[in-house]
């Protein structure tokens, strides 16, 4: 009796621990790699951030001095402001256009597959390559964009060559490039919607705008929030197109946090200070994603 109980207990034990334990060897190799190239560098960054360290010199412990210096550094403060400005616009436009595009591509029409593929090409293309083409299009004298603007009677712009218009110009490229990702995430949400509410609404004589506003939008809201979080994070850490098109210029007019970090680390080789920037940058990104995700938990679309 007690023997059978023991066996049953042992079986129950293996049953419960079965799924938790048996699969871990599959994760170990990737886990070790993630530790070596992601976690360990992070610890190293934290340590470096409390040292004064230029490449070629010995690191010297300075405590929180890098952080104190950072918060009094007006170049850093401006970089934060520019990042917020850039991110706000580079989230707003792709979100609005991406949701509209998802609604369009959710319908059936001839050549839908081809149109969708063309629509996602900007996000798949090599960012440096398209950024170079945009740079040529932005040229104030010879660029095709100013020709198009003036030929329909609008004033020419200096695009990325002017301190005022450079960030909106970069937002334009970012919107062109990343609206497709918002579209795909929201489209995935639309594809999983049930059909019944629409049929009921149609019987009640609802217009298509009413159906969109009161059925579609609330149901795809979780997907919209996911797209919003992903877009915000990507906009905060945008690098390639800014680096190629304006490299933070003219002057420092488009120097966002990521460009400032690059300059500090790999133009001035000021590794300790750059590590402190990295830590603050990381905390900022984490805070923003947490706030957005908790917004997802608390609010449902009304």
């Amino acid at each position: 009796m007690s023997a059978t109980l023991a066996v049953a207990a042992a079986q129950a034990k293996t049953k419960t621990s079965n799924y938790a334990r048996i699969y871990w060897p599959f994760v170990v190799p990737a886990g070790l790699l993630v530790f070596a190239i992601i976690i360990a560098p992070w610890v190293f960054t934290l340590i470096m951030s409390v040292h004064e360290w230029k490449v070629g010199e010995d690191p010297a412990f300075v405590g929180l001095e890098n952080y104190i210096r950072l918060f009094n550094d007006s170049r850093f403060q401006w970089a934060i402001l520019r990042t917020v400005y850039f991110t706000t616009l580079a989230v707003l436009f792709p979100m609005v256009l991406g949701i509209a595009a998802a609604v369009c591509f959710h319908k059936n029409f001839p050549f839908r597959g081809l149109a969708r593929t063309i629509f996602i090409l900007p996000m798949m293309a090599t960012p440096v390559a398209v950024a170079l083409v945009w740079t040529m299009m932005f040229h104030p004298q010879l660029g095709v964009l100013n020709y198009l603007l003036t030929s329909i009677g609008l004033p020419a712009s200096e695009w990325s060559y002017n301190a005022v218009s450079v960030i909106p110009t970069l937002v334009l490229v970012e919107t062109w490039q990343w609206t497709p990702l918002v579209m795909l995430i929201v489209l995935g949400g639309l594809a999983s919607l049930p059909q019944d509410p629409y049929e009921a609404a149609k019987l009640d004589g609802a217009s298509s705008w009413q159906m969109f506003r009161h059925i579609t939008l609330p149901l795809v809201w979780p997907h919209i929030i996911v797209a919003l979080v992903i877009r915000t994070i990507d906009a905060l850490k945008a690098f390639d197109t800014i680096f190629v098109i304006s490299n933070g210029g003219p002057g420092t007019a488009s120097e966002t946090l990521n460009i400032f970090l690059y300059q500090t680390a790999f133009a001035y080789y000021n590794m300790g200070y750059a590590s402190a920037i990295t830590v603050v940058f990381f905390i900022l990104i984490m805070l923003v994603s947490l706030v957005l995700f908790s917004a997802r938990q608390k609010t449902t679309f009304q």
Binding site: V27, I37, T278, I285
Partner: peptide
């Protein structure tokens, strides 16, 4: 392994790589 053991924490750890700027690994 992660899918079968439903280890969502391991998955979240992987997502950190998606969230952090590439430059932050580059310095170390």
């Amino acid at each position: 392994g992660i899918a079968k053991s439903k280890a969502s924490k391991a998955a979240a750890l992987i997502m950190i790589a998606r969230v952090t700027p590439g430059l932050s690994y580059l310095i170390p």
